[in-house]
Design a protein around this nucleic acid. Structure first.
Lengths: 203, 203
DNA sequence: CATAAAAATAAACAGTGTTCAATTAATAAA
DNA sequence: TTTATTAATTGAACACTGTTTATTTTTATG
């Protein structure tokens, strides 16, 4: 075959990412196969290399989809969150965990895929990742009665790392959190403990 | 060939773990190959399956070696640590990071290897992992003027998760900590902030 | 020495990522 | 409309994996 009219270039990209994402969700990163993903899309592996240029870019695109869904999930959870500051932060952290648990394989794949510093990441893919940190920036700045300044952003990244650590060790079934029943609760407690050191009275 | 007299069963095990660990350190988990590891040891893949029973057990053995070296590294760092509580905790956290940075690939392999809950982990391998948490248990209990009770142990695992999150995101070059210059310092700050909520005056 | 047991291998299998020449389909030109 | 051109898709090849199994080789035992 050659150029086919059943999919535009945009549709094909979407189709491949969709099939790849589904495969990642059901198999996990270690057992993911680009060959199998393309097979499911009705194409051969070569097409992935044509469309994405290489396996890394394909995986990045798949993970970007996960990032966007994650952000959507957080925003959806915040709609029904309590209005007090601590309650809202707790809702945010629990939603962070909730998404990861509901999409284990896809979520872990984000961190399983190690990207060589040499390769440059697409603008859209960077944006998908910044969407997530942006939400936390906004919420934490609001909880602290602070503007979105550089100090808050630095703290936020550290808080994300804090929550990430709990979530990652939990889902990977690591030694450290094996007997912990409520890792999300622990993460919430730690985050709130940290935040007490930065809270300023509301104006 | 058959049973060879150049290595006892114990020596062979050690040799394979040693070569595997070296290979892991230089290639990282994604590019690790059991075939190559056995080749370097002067044997064929089958031998790994004979000695360890399967790839998972081999990888666990390799990671256990990393755990033991990590514990040694921490103990060594604590020898020269300040004697004040905060200083000692800071030394511990920085040593945690220091080992991970100095042995990136081996350190990350610990978390890259996902172990199915169905397989049972050897007693020695569990011990290697508990060595590490034991050190932190001891240090935190001491810093809090607490005995090594169940509440401290729970908090310690959460603190480990906190530090782990910073370390993992940093070494994986993740979006969240890309522009952070001193992730270890951030982890130290968070841990100390958390600990202020648990400190009781010394007797 | 002969034999049984254990250890190591070689070979086979099914799969992988990656590259590239060949083929096919759509488009533009004649 | 027919032809030439260009772009998309494939298929085949390559060098690897992990895993299993029958076979060989070595050692120790009777």
């Amino acid at each position: 075959m050659g150029r086919r009219s059943d999919h535009t270039s945009e549709e094909l990209r979407e189709l491949l990412v969709s099939c790849g994402h589904d495969l990642m969700a059901e198999r996990g990163f270690a057992k993911f196969s680009a060959r199998e993903a393309s097979r499911r899309a009705g194409y051969t592996v070569g097409t992935i290399y044509n469309v994405f240029g290489g396996l890394d870019s394909y995986l990045i695109a798949i993970n970007s989809r996960t990032f966007r869904r994650w952000s959507d999930w957080l925003e959806a959870a915040l709609v029904n969150a309590p209005t007090d500051q601590a309650g809202r932060i707790e809702a945010l952290v629990r939603a962070y965990f909730g998404f990861a648990e509901a999409h284990r394989n896809a979520w872990m794949a984000i961190y399983d895929h190690r990207i060589d510093r040499s390769i440059t990441i697409d603008k859209d893919d960077v944006a998908a990742r910044e969407l997530l940190t942006g939400i936390v920036d906004r919420e934490v700045a609001s909880a602290l009665n602070f503007g979105d300044d550089v100090e808050v952003r630095r703290l936020v990244r550290s808080l994300i790392a804090t929550v990430h650590g709990h979530c990652a060790l939990w889902l990977s079934g690591s030694f450290a959190l094996l007997q912990e029943e409520d890792p999300a609760g622990q993460a919430v407690d730690r985050v709130l403990e940290i935040l007490t050191h930065y809270i300023t009275p509301s104006a």
